[in-house]
Amino acid sequence: MLRRSFTAVLEKNAVFDGDFATEPYEVGWASEARFFVRVRELSEGARLLCRPQISPDGLFWCDEGAEGVSIAAPGLYSFAVREFGNWLRLDCPLDGRAKLLIYLALK
C-alpha cells in the first residue's frame, strides 16, 4: 500500500491585521507534516511569526517547540514538524497587515 498524503489549505488568500491562529486540524494519521506559508502582501515594516502549536483535544494548545519561521517580506516559507500527536495549528503573531496562503502537507 502506498503511503497516504494530504495537503490542506488552512488559509486561502486571507487578510489579517494582527495576531491570529489557524483553525485546529487533525493530523493523528500522519507521521510528518510540513507547513508552507505563501505571503502575497505584507505591509511596510510588518513582521509575521508562524510557529507550530499542538493540542491533545483541539481545544487547549501549547507550543510544539520548533521556532517556525519569521517573515519580513512577501515570499514562500516552509518548515517541517514531527511527533505532533493528533492536532496541529500555527500560532501567528503579526505586527502589521498580511495577505497570505497557508498549506499543511501531511504524509
Partner: peptide
C-alpha cells in the same frame, strides 16, 4: 485570480481525517 472568489465560496475549509478525539 484568488481575489475574484466570492466571499461565500472562498473559505469552505479543507476536510480532515478524524479519529473523533475529545478532551
Amino acid at each position: 485570480d484568488l481575489d475574484r472568489i466570492r466571499p461565500a465560496v472562498a473559505d469552505l475549509r479543507p476536510p480532515q481525517l478524524s479519529s473523533c478525539t475529545f478532551f
